[in-house]
Every structure is written in structure tokens, then in C-alpha cells.
Design a protein around this nucleic acid. Structure first.
Lengths: 219, 219
DNA sequence: TGCGGTTCTAGTGTATGCAAGAAGTGCGAA
DNA sequence: TTCGCACTTCTTGCATACACTAGAACCGCA
């Protein structure tokens, strides 16, 4: 945290830092973002802070009410569900395209990731599994060979990171998640895109159940 | 242009105006956006202009190069193709969901729009058909009963408006477009979501051919 | 004590000034 | 003539100052 990327624009650094704090939950939904205060925290004036907030609002991470400041987007339960559905559909779309388009190298990379994950599950290393999981999906995005789709899918996944964090903590979830990846991978290797898409929807659905439990006691 | 929405924030007005000029093509891709100059044009200082540009960059309409200013996103041909594919997939996803979820009222609204379009095709009223087309797809978005998906689909469609403008001008396209809508509608009414999705992909593909001809002579 | 209106204030929206960086320009040398 | 380099200028990035508004706090009155 001492001296990171001094070549980046100040406003960019602030934007990234704030986005990070929001997606990791350090900044709870509904928190007000005081420009002056944030500026002080980063040793900057209000101007770059404002620019950062503007961008975050365009991405949907914060909400701006004219003359009343910005607050971290408090998404309703319904909206989270909606976002999750979209996420699942996008992932399904990606895997369908990727099934038809990945080259052998990409296929083997995916298989390798799946292979590696076995040890993580056995060791109960959730953080490592989480990272692998991220790479797994990322590889599928790139497998679509469509840069725009890959970007959008990644952006959506980023945006949902805030809600996804705790989802793997549920009992036995990593093992089940891995099993689902296995089925998915099999469908991909078979070249059955439609089936892969179905597997992915199911995978995302199961993943969302953990989330649902997490958000059960909210408005 | 005289006195529009004076209650809106100045920066918001500028953002909307710029977005409009970009999507309608008045601001060609690659055009540099000079903050001072734009500010003068709107009778504002550079600050609100900067904020507007920041937001546009987050949405992808302009590209910002640090210390080198912003230019209207010049999308390469490949990127347009990528975006079009995503658009087609999203539309297909929407129509699949909508098929399963629309209520009778929504179904009949869709059918009504299709009905009305016959006269427009016959009269050769392309502008009217274009508006109807917009409504048709919009109705499908809403038919997903997923506000987030509807928003995202609309945003993407907006973003592609710049390239889509001339697509209906091709010879006989409106008539063909309407025929495709007809097939699509039939699949929806039958409740066959998968088939509706296929129809939609095909519809979007055919629509893209006109676009391809349009962009043929570009880098 | 409760309510309507008024004042105050904290915090946003905008303008302006200054400094640093990037592109263009002109001169000199090979 | 062409290449390299310093210089100039133009534009952006950030800081600061001022203006304005939404709420809060306050006060007087019923």
C-alpha cells in the first residue's frame, strides 16, 4: 500500500481504490461518499475524487443524487437476483461460444486448471480455489474469441464480486463446485455447446443458492 | 436546442448532448474532444465538460488517453463485429427468457406492434418502421421480467445505434425484417423459447449483413 | 408541546489558476 | 535532404475559490 503505480493518474488510482473497497465490502452499500474526506484520505483535492466517483456511477457501483452526493449502490434483493440471472445467462452464452471456438491450447489450459483444483479442494484452500475459479471462467471468456464479449462478461463478474465473496464458504461448496466444473468440462470436450450452456446455468444456479442464504436476512 | 431541462445538472446536460452527437454520428469516431472548445459551445467551463467526458469513457463512447485528451471511440471493424455478435446473443437470450415469462398482455402488445408494421412496410415509411422495431425489441426486453437484463440490453442497443442507423436502408430490408419478426413471433406464441432464440440470432445476423456492406470500405 | 417558517451550515456544482506533459516546430548537423 | 534535438505551445490534470442548494437546526407561535 505504500507506493503503487505512481505513473497512473491520481483520479484513476482513487477510482480503483474505491472500486476495490466497494467490491470487497469495506464500503458498505448505502455509505455516503464525502468528497472532501476521501480527498484527504488520498492526499488529493476534491477534483480527482469527483472524477473517480463519476466513473463509478457510470459503472453502477455508486449512485449519485444531484446536490446530495453519492452513496454506494445499495442493491435490492430483487436486483441482486436479476443480476445473478444475467450473470448466469452470460456465462452460459460464453461457454456455448467457447465450446465451438476454443483451440486445443485453450482447451488444455482449461483442463489443466480443473486438474489443479483437485488438490485445492482436498487441502480446503478456499482462497486458492477462488483464484482458480476466477481463471477458469476467465479462460472461457477468452475462449469465445470475442474481445467485446470477454470484456463485458468480466465487467459483470467484477461488479458482482461484492456479493459473490462469501458464496464459497458454504458447507462443502468447493467440492460440489469442482464436480460441476467437471461436468461442464466434459461437455466442452465433447463439443456439445448447448449442453455446456445448460451445465453452466446449473452451476451458476447452485452457486447462487449459497448467496441466497447469505442475503436471506436483508431488505 | 433553446432551453432544455434547466433543472438538470450542467454536466448531465453536456453528457447527454455529447452522447447524442456521438450516437447519431455528428461526432465521427476518432474526433478529438477539446474540453475548452466544448465548454465554450455549451457556455460552461471545463469542469463540467470533464465530468461528462469521464462518464462517457466509462460507458465506452469515448476513449481517454492520459494527458492526451479524449477521442470518440473509433471502433475497429473487428470490434463492431464483436459487438454485433454480443448484441445478437443478448437479444436471443432476452427472447428466450421472454418467451417463458411474458404474460398475455405483453404477448398481445408484441403481436399488435407486428400487425401495425405491415402498413409501414407497405407505405415504405422507414422511420416509422424503425421506431416500431425499437419498441418491438424493447417490449421483448421487458418481457424478460428482469429489470437488470432489460437495462443492459437497452444500453447495448443504444451503444450500437451509431452503427445501426443505416442498416434498414438496404434494398427490401424492411420487408425481410418484418418477415423475420413474423417467424420470431410465431415461435414466441408457440412457447418455444429455444426456437425463438434461434430466430432472433438469424434475424440479427441478417440485419448485420446490411451493416457489413456499410462498413465494407473502412479500416 | 407540536407545527410552520426561517436561518444556518455542510457539502455539492462550477469557475478559474497553475503546473506538468505531449505534440508540433524550427534549427543545426550529418 | 533528412534526421535529431531543443523549444514552444497547447491541452490536460489537479488545486483552490466561490456559488448555490438541500437538510438540519432553530425559533416563534398557536
Amino acid at each position: 500500500m505504500s507506493e503503487e503505480a505512481p505513473n497512473l493518474l491520481l483520479s484513476e488510482r482513487i477510482r480503483i481504490a474505491l472500486a476495490d473497497e466497494i467490491t470487497t465490502g469495506q464500503l458498505a452499500p448505502g455509505s455516503a461518499l464525502d468528497e472532501q474526506q476521501i480527498g484527504d484520505r488520498f492526499g488529493a483535492s476534491r477534483t480527482p475524487v469527483r472524477e473517480a466517483i463519476r466513473q463509478l456511477s457510470a459503472v453502477g457501483l455508486v449512485e449519485m443524487r444531484p446536490r446530495r452526493g453519492a452513496v454506494v449502490s445499495g442493491v435490492s434483493t430483487q436486483r441482486i437476483i436479476d443480476m445473478f440471472e444475467m450473470s448466469a445467462e452470460i456465462e452460459a452464452m460464453c461457454v456455448r461460444l467457447a465450446t465451438y471456438r476454443m483451440n486445443p491450447v485453450e482447451r488444455s489450459r482449461l483442463a489443466q486448471l480443473h486438474e489443479d483444483s483437485e488438490a485445492m479442494v482436498a487441502a480446503g484452500d478456499i482462497d486458492a480455489y477462488d483464484r482458480m475459479n476466477w481463471d477458469f471462467h476467465q479462460t472461457i471468456y477468452e475462449g469465445t474469441h470475442n474481445a467485446f464479449i470477454a470484456e463485458q462478461a468480466l465487467a459483470l463478474r467484477d461488479r458482482m464480486a461484492a456479493f459473490r465473496r462469501t458464496q464459497l464458504r458454504g458447507g462443502g461448496r468447493p467440492a460440489k463446485s469442482r464436480a460441476e466444473h467437471g461436468e461442464l468440462l466434459a461437455a466442452i470436450m465433447r463439443g456439445d455447446g448447448e449442453e455446456a450452456a445448460r451445465c453452466m446455468r446449473s452451476h451458476m444456479f447452485h452457486a447462487s443458492l449459497a448467496l441466497e442464504r447469505f442475503t436471506a436476512g436483508r431488505s
